[in-house]
């Protein structure tokens, strides 16, 4: 079956029966697939707790904290523990989790002091739109639209699976890569159309608070410097796979692409959300 790469990635990661995140992810022990910054060190949880306290001083009416995509639950656990009893009582803690496997894992680890939701709009509804939101390594798992530059014809084509090139139907106004016309022939870029669509779904329900985004990426076009094949890769039992190996084990391996922060911030800006700070993770940990 031929399909756009984004549809393949969506199935490989989130198919209800066979998706990597929905069914096959392992979270426990040394065989676990999670070895993110959150699980490796408690310092990120302490830093986010400190950031939340600072934000709470600026907007004391906000009493809800939402983590989107909470993995094995360790980040939320560290964060809540590092609050004193006063802050723990002050806030209601929410987790947005689409994966039933991870949700079960989180409930086992965290117990009854949290509220789970399957989408962010529902979590925001229960917070009346006033919430502090954070997510760590969430966006890089959103299905990416893959495009390839044709220098001779001076146009971008969309990559399908199995590999074929098709005309795309995207508006270049929304994607910096589609406005870039000086790449070498066959340069590949990933467009997070799915992230933009997702922002459009839930941001109308968000009235006040602040959102912390932590993810791996760069500004455009630096993101693609010396990366003619783009940033897409898969991880199978901690082994890194690129090229057509990404298509080999759908549902068994994680697939990820770096975030184009130029686009991400522009999308939020257009929706009425201002960027108030930008740091490397090291700077953020140092500041908090």
């Amino acid at each position: 079956m031929a399909e756009p790469f984004s549809a393949f990635m969506a199935r490989a990661l989130f198919d209800p029966e066979r998706g990597y995140y929905t069914r096959h992810i392992r979270t426990v022990g040394s065989r676990g697939d999670f070895s993110t910054s959150a699980t490796l060190s408690p310092s990120l949880g302490h830093a986010i707790a400190d950031w939340l306290k600072a934000e709470s001083h600026l907007q004391p009416h906000v009493r809800h904290i939402i983590e989107i995509g909470a993995g094995d639950g360790s980040l939320m656990q560290t964060l809540r523990k590092s609050f004193g009893w006063w802050a723990r009582r002050r806030f209601t803690f929410h987790i947005v989790e689409t994966s039933p496997v991870l949700r079960q894992e989180q409930q086992k680890k965290l117990g009854g002091k949290f509220t789970w939701h399957t989408d962010l709009a529902a979590a925001l509804a229960s917070a009346q739109g006033h919430a502090f939101i954070y997510h760590n390594e969430l966006l890089d798992a959103f299905p990416a639209t893959l495009v390839q530059w044709n220098a001779a014809e001076q146009r971008w084509l969309e990559v399908w699976v199995p590999e074929q090139l098709h005309a795309h139907h995207l508006d270049p106004a929304h994607y910096s890569a589609l406005r870039h016309t000086s790449f070498a022939d066959r340069q590949r870029c990933e467009l997070h159309v799915s992230v933009r669509d997702w922002l459009h779904q839930w941001t109308p329900h968000w009235k006040s608070g602040a959102m912390l985004t932590i993810d791996y990426g760069d500004a455009f076009p630096q993101l693609y410097h010396r990366r003619p094949h783009g940033t897409l890769r898969a991880y199978l039992l901690h082994q890194r796979l690129t090229g057509t190996d990404i298509y080999a084990n759908p549902g068994r391996q994680d697939i990820t692409a770096d975030i184009n922060f130029t686009d991400y911030t522009a999308w939020l800006q257009a929706l009425g959300f201002a960027e108030v700070s930008q740091h490397t993770l090291a700077e953020f940990l140092h500041a908090h």
Partner: peptide
């Protein structure tokens, strides 16, 4: 360069 980055956004009215 490519790295983990932290962004904070706020609704315009709160920024």
């Amino acid at each position: 360069g490519t790295a983990f980055k932290c962004f904070v956004h706020r609704p315009q009215a709160c920024a």
